[in-house]
């Protein structure tokens, strides 16, 4: 049984709901813009701290974080939709009408990606207006957005797995909180080298630190540990894909 028609249908319906419901669409679009404005504008003096060495500047430094953050939360917000569909019973229609149910997860995933693509486009345009410096070449820029896509998928697959296991929108904090903590225990405001004490130890152990550093490196034209960053991103997405599909099996068994 073909997976694509199911994925196409689920993605179309999810996007239609998000794009025609302002209460769903605008928060995921406006929060990253707000964070970018607040971090890049309000904290720009951080770039004068001794040891802060990022040639493209603080706006670009923060842009990469906000881009990856928007990617992660774009995925998580789509997971909220999964949980809502189970809570309202609409997921039962999808399970019943989909010959190949794996397409349901794929469809939600495509919707998460498309939804984030809109946010990323807006964010990039505003960042360019605000003085985003791109030191890297086209391949570097592609690398940054590819990393963000993987982060988006990882965020979605995590929350999708939760949504399909708990099947209630009350699972929202459980989807959001680990992602929030993982992102903010990375070097958000200053490079890793400037962190001290326990936060430095935590950031060093946090895989997002390496993804973030590589992303920032892409825009500086000198990306560090690219293989590690992509390995972590692809590995997380692969493990979380397993998590999400097992969540689907869990939902199927529950009826």
């Amino acid at each position: 049984m073909r997976i694509w028609p199911v994925a196409q249908g689920v993605a179309w319906r999810t996007l239609k709901i998000v794009l025609t419901t302002p209460s769903l669409f605008f928060p995921s679009l406006l929060f990253p813009l707000f964070f970018f404005t607040a971090f890049a504008g309000g904290l720009s003096q951080v770039s004068h701290v001794p040891g802060f060495n990022y040639p493209p500047g603080y706006t670009t430094f923060q842009f990469v974080f906000v881009l990856l953050q928007s990617a992660a939360f774009g995925g998580v917000f789509t997971g909220f939709g999964v949980a809502r569909d189970f809570e309202t019973g609409f997921a039962r229609r999808l399970l019943l009408a989909s010959p190949n149910r794996s397409g349901i997860v794929l469809g939600y995933g495509l919707a998460a990606l498309a939804r984030w693509a809109i946010t990323a486009t807006m964010l990039t345009m505003i960042a360019l207006i605000a003085g985003l410096n791109i030191g890297g070449n086209g391949v570097d820029v592609f690398g940054l957005y590819l990393l963000a896509v993987l982060v988006n998928m990882a965020g979605f697959l995590w929350s999708c797995g939760i949504g399909m296991r708990l099947r209630t929108i009350q699972a929202g904090p459980l989807m959001q909180m680990p992602v929030f903590l993982t992102l903010f225990f990375a070097p958000v405001y200053v490079p890793l080298e400037l962190l001290q004490g326990w936060i430095h130890a935590v950031a060093r152990a946090n895989p997002v630190t390496y993804v973030l550093a590589t992303g920032r490196g892409f825009l500086a034209g000198d990306p560090p540990h690219v293989a590690l960053a992509f390995g972590l991103a692809v590995g997380s997405a692969a493990v979380l894909a397993l998590w999400a599909f097992r969540g689907l099996r869990n939902a199927e068994a529950a009826g």
């Binding site: 049984m1 319906r13 239609k16 019973g89 609409f90 999808l94 019943l96 009408a97 010959p99």
Partner: peptide, 29 residues
């Protein structure tokens, strides 16, 4: 699932979609 149709006790409909949207979705799935 490809051979059957079903209308269950609680009509699982999305209040934010139109009737035509539902049919289009079902046809796509």
């Amino acid at each position: 699932r490809a051979s059957i149709g079903a209308a269950l006790q609680e009509a699982a409909l999305d209040p934010l979609l139109t009737g035509r949207d539902h049919l289009r979705l079902q046809a796509t799935l």
